[in-house]
Amino acid sequence: MFLIPKPVGKFFHRMASPPYFYDFTGRLIPWLSWIFLFLVIAGLYGGLVLAPADYQQGDSFRIIYIHVPSAWMSLFVYVVMAIAGGIGLIWRIKLAEIVAISSASVGAGFTFIALVTGSLWGKPMWGTWWVWDARLTSELILLFLYLGVIGLYGAIDDKRTASRAVAILALVGVVNIPIIHYSVEWWNTLHQGPTVTKMDKPSIHISMLWPLLVMAVAFKFYYVIAMLQRARTELVVRERNSQWVKLLLESK
């Protein structure tokens, strides 16, 4: 703990208090939303207007600006969920538990988007809606993992217990994701020809790359906004009988 500067430690300590968290995130979200809007408009303008059409795929490659950031986010959110779940499990911090379960639905959303846009991109490229491509297949399994987390949380009535169950499952999942990912990739190289690697290009021109990176950062901001919104709802529902929620209701 001595490695963490004092103000940072103090900040996290205060964030662990529900009323402070609720108040602080309420003021934070508008700022994040403006940054997100700015980034997303810049990224979309760069990706849909400024970037030249791909010499092989024409304009269909422009799906990359939502497909690839979503695919990145789907993995990133799972890792965040597992870390938050682990923190909640070890130190019994209520807010870490809430962050973990609030991430699940957002992560599932990103996974779903990556799957649907991958399929929509694949249709003109491969001629069919679905190909057992390595990336799409591992994305589908990741969606099942997310649905398992959400389903388990919904199935257990006591939400404190449910959070612990979800944390254990997420940690098991995070150990398994690399194993699943590489086994699917290995399986794919055996069963598929080289035609499916059309999607990932080793070299991408800078005018095509920067909108992709901007969109990736924008999606990170989006994740924080959506996760915090869900966390705030989750928090007031769980703390409905506490004094600060009553004060909050009276102040309205």
């Binding site: 939502i66 779903f112 929509l120 249709k123 959506a226 709802t233």
Partner: peptide, 20 residues
């Protein structure tokens, strides 16, 4: 393909913020 992709993404992302 392009506009359906963007539309679905937009709807899903909006729903995930609005619902909570």
């Amino acid at each position: 393909y392009v506009w359906v992709s963007y539309a679905i993404t937009f709807v899903v992302l909006l729903a995930l913020v609005i619902m909570p």
